[in-house]
Simulated scan of single mutants.
Amino acid sequence: MKKWYAIYTHAKWEKKVATLLTRKDIENYCPLNKVARQWSDRKKIMFEPLFTSYVFVRITDKEYLSVLQTDGVLNYVSWQGKPAVIRDAEIELVRNFLLEYSSVRLERLDVEVDDTVRIKCGLFMEQEGKVMEVLGKSLRVFLPSLGYAMLAEIPKSNVEVVSTRSRGELLFILLFYYQLLLS
């Protein structure tokens, strides 16, 4: 069964690694961001890697070593000592997002468990809650102000930290998967 993984590449080797993997018949995805660059005499549309030094591969266990033996590949992105598996839905979300938007920016948001955050956009805009879990690029946030406890998975880009490390009591949990909504 094939699974998606992220691999580290040498700096500025993302496109080249993707080409080399394709030549080896290894399914890969290098998300490219459409950006306009201004030169002194003209503007040019360019496609740059969205994630610097990362390429995604969808492989079986048998292809694992072949990926590492590709020029420009440094290692797999790991989580708790094992290569981190990426859900198909997350890869599709990136693909669809890049089809709809250009000049996308990535921002890293330092959030920890028990931080209080405010949601900046989407269905729960302006609601505050406590971070229960950090899941890569999203958070599980406890939202008590709706009259009952709700646990929402929210992209980090949609929250801002209000206060850090305060303890909260969890009464009831209703799992709600909040999808990425950007305006």
Rank of each mutant, 00 (worst) to 15 (best):
Gly81Gln: 05
Tyr76Lys: 06
Lys34Glu: 12
Arg42Gln: 08
Asp88Glu: 11
Ser138His: 11
Lys44Thr: 14
Val113Asp: 06
Glu90Ile: 12
Gln38Arg: 15
Glu48Asn: 13
Glu63Thr: 01
Glu128Pro: 09
Asp61Thr: 12
Arg23Glu: 13
Ala11Asn: 14
Val17Phe: 02
Thr19Ile: 14
Pro31Arg: 03
Glu126Met: 09
Gly136Tyr: 05
Leu123Met: 14
Arg37Ile: 11
Met46Gly: 05
Arg140Glu: 11
Val55Lys: 01
Glu92Ala: 12
Leu135Pro: 07
Leu98Glu: 06
Leu109His: 13
Glu27Lys: 14
Asp61Met: 09
Leu32Ala: 04
Leu32Cys: 04
Asp88Arg: 11
Leu123Tyr: 12
Arg118Asp: 00
Asp25Thr: 09
Val104Glu: 01
Lys24Asn: 04
Glu126Cys: 08
Phe56Arg: 08
Lys62Met: 07
Lys130Ile: 14
Arg42Glu: 05
Ile86Pro: 03
Val113Gly: 06
Lys15His: 03
Thr9Tyr: 08
Ile119Asp: 00
Val131Leu: 04
Lys34Met: 07
Arg105Ala: 05
Asp114Tyr: 13
Tyr8Arg: 12
Ile26Ala: 00
Thr60Cys: 08
Val111Trp: 01
Tyr8Val: 04
Glu27Phe: 08
Leu32Glu: 10
Ala84Val: 04
Ile59Ser: 06
Ala18Phe: 03
Ile26Gln: 00
Arg87Asp: 15
Val73Leu: 03
Gln127Ile: 10
Tyr54His: 09
Ala36Tyr: 15
Leu93Thr: 11
Leu98Arg: 05
Gly129Trp: 06
Asp71Leu: 09
Leu106Asn: 07
Cys121Asn: 13
Ser102Asn: 15
Asp110Val: 09
Glu27Tyr: 06
Ser138Arg: 14
Thr22Leu: 10
Arg140Pro: 00
Ser102Ile: 11
Tyr64Phe: 13
Arg58Asn: 14
Trp79Lys: 14
Ala36Trp: 15
Asp71Gln: 11
Leu65Trp: 07
Thr22Gly: 07
Gly81Leu: 02
Lys62Val: 11
Gln69Val: 00
Phe56Ala: 04
Val77His: 04
Val67Leu: 03
Phe97His: 09
Ser78Met: 12
Ile7Gln: 00
Trp79Ala: 11
Phe56Met: 05
Leu74Val: 14
Gln80Asn: 12
Leu99Lys: 15
Val117Leu: 02
Ala89Gly: 10
Glu27Ala: 08
Ser53Gln: 13
